[in-house]
Design a binder for these strands. Structure first.
Length: 467
RNA sequence: GCUCCCUUCGUCUAGUGGUUAGGACGCCGGCCUCUCACGUCGGUAACAGGGGUUCGAGUCCCCUAGGGAGCGCCA
């Protein structure tokens, strides 16, 4: 039987990092088994669902490279089907109308709680003979009274829940709309889902869903409940822990492959391996190896992974991902003649695309001043004279490449009996505006003779007026 | 309160009865060095606690503690 997995987000916001991991696991499972991956939008809560959120989820999936084979299906477009199944259950006597008012239910729950019991519906409307005329009924599923539900969970192992712990849940509201646990069941059934991979906050829903499935006469799918992702404080990952929106990571300069790699390793592992190509993930991923306990999201490790991916990226690929960030900084990367060299020299030292852009700016744009701290530290003493002397040497230099620039600087240092730092640092500030740049010889080589001489002149002037 | 789930370094994890409990991130230190970053070498640090079973337990069983989830006419 072909594997079919699904990802069923509710469009009530951005794509959450935790949902993304669940989606990734489902996607991997389908890909690994040559199966199909279904996207289903659970938008039955019309109050909170909206079109922008649907788009945000689609964007997030696409950015992560999680493609789907079927869908997106929208639950709001399947209302007739849900109604059909509700009627079917009603006709078969497997569901019934309940006329209990909210007040009645509240009181019942209060009593149960007071007794120390778990609050649950006691089934009083199962036998109701004379329905009141003025109360629009809900439809409840007739849950089995005894016996157990057994889940052989692919992650957690065998879970056994007694039916006496369950109650007759509402499958249709008084306005006729179906509820979550019911729509999921009908969808999973109709879409022939074979493996439900979802967060373990759903384990409590699973026995109910299995019971409905059985009442409908279908074989339940296999379940895999993956643990939640927690924040540093051990609480469920949420906004207060930092970025939880997948797209925020794009904005912050992360590579999608790095995020995916981080996510797959959070709660799953293959021996000591840390870095996986997409192909390796598909081949090696094994749902049974997923950790049973929840994992804490660790931004530092993600940052490290991002750096590893930036470092290893082909320069063209890097440019494609960074293009947008350069645009935001006012640079059209495609118009820069030396973009390749600049990216190459900076990709070894940037943990994010944002940092890469920051480190690259002075190559592409004229300086708009000097960093105050750097000036104070290095534009002093003989710096001005040294720059003047250096300028003369550089002007004569030919060919203009890193190797010859290197030699030139060393010769000057030797001749003046000073450390290379005494030359390199003022020079660095002159061309980069700060005391931070790639190796000075490479920096000059990439920048080009003309710009370098021009910037050195400007720096000499600046130092003169300073004195 | 009730039910279910979980528990190896700070964090992610390896480990399926016999290991000096391994790796990764982070952190600390040495080296390298024109800055930043890298690299490199080394270090720090864990089986939640208590009972069993066993010649032997991180690994199996029980209890306790701690954490999480659920108990809606939300999804």
């Amino acid at each position: 039987m072909a594997v079919i997995t699904r990802f069923p987000p509710s469009p009530t916001g951005y794509l959450h990092i935790g949902s993304a991991r669940t989606a990734l696991y489902s996607w991997l499972y389908a890909r690994k088994h040559g199966g199909r991956f279904v996207l289903r939008i659970e938008d039955t809560d019309r109050q909170r669902s909206n079109e922008e959120s649907v788009q945000a989820i689609l964007d997030g999936m696409s950015w992560l490279g999680l493609d789907y084979d079927e869908g997106p299906f929208f639950q709001t477009q399947r209302m007739n089907r849900y109604q059909e199944v509700i009627d079917q259950l009603l006709d078969a006597g497997k569901a019934y109308h309940c006329y209990c008012t909210r007040e009645e239910l509240d009181e019942m729950r209060a009593q149960q709680r007071a007794r120390g019991d778990k609050p649950r519906y006691d089934g009083r409307c199962r036998q109701r003979s004379q329905p009141p005329q003025d109360v629009p009924p809900v439809v409840r599923f007739k849950n089995p009274l005894d016996g157990n539900v057994v889940i052989d969970d692919l992650v957690k192992g065998r879970i056994i829940i007694s039916n006496s712990e369950l109650d007759d849940l509402i499958i249709a509201r008084s306005d006729g709309t179906p509820t979550y646990n019911f729509t999921v069941v009908v969808d999973d059934m109709d879409m022939r889902i074979t493996h439900v991979i979802r967060g373990d906050d759903h384990v409590n829903n699973t026995p109910r869903q299995i019971n409905i499935l059985k009442a409908l006469g279908v074989e339940p799918p296999r379940y895999a409940h993956v643990p939640m992702i927690l924040g540093e404080d051990g609480k469920r990952l949420s906004k207060r822990h930092g970025a939880v929106s997948v797209m925020q990571y794009r904005d912050d300069g992360y590579l999608p492959r790095a995020l995916v790699n981080y996510l797959v390793r959070l709660g799953w592992s293959h021996g000591d391996q840390e870095i996986f190509t997409r192909q390796e993930m598909i081949e090696l991923f094994n749902i049974g190896n997923v950790q049973r306990g929840s994992a804490v999201f660790n931004p530092e490790k993600l940052l490290w992974l991002n750096y590893e991916y930036i470092k290893a990226a082909k320069v063209e690929e890097l440019r494609d991902h960074a293009r947008w960030h350069f645009e935001n900084a006012g640079i059209n990367i495609d118009e820069q003649p030396n973009w390749k060299q600049v990216l190459r020299v900076n990709q070894q030292r940037s943990k994010t695309l944002l940092e890469l852009v920051g480190r690259s700016m002075f190559f592409f744009r004229e300086l708009d001043g000097y960093d105050a701290k750097s000036v104070k530290k290095h534009f002093k003493g003989q710096a001005g004279e040294i720059l003047v002397e250096l300028r003369a040497q550089l002007e004569r230099l030919d060919p203009w490449d890193a190797e010859h620039i290197h030699l030139c600087l060393h010769r000057l240092a030797e001749r003046l009996s000073i450390g290379l730092g005494k030359i390199a640092q003022p020079l660095r500030i002159a061309v980069a505006g700060v005391a931070v740049s790639p190796p000075i010889d490479e920096t000059l080589a990439i920048l080009g003779k003309k710009k370098v001489l021009h910037r050195v002149d400007a720096a000499v002037d600046y130092i003169d007026t300073m004195m």
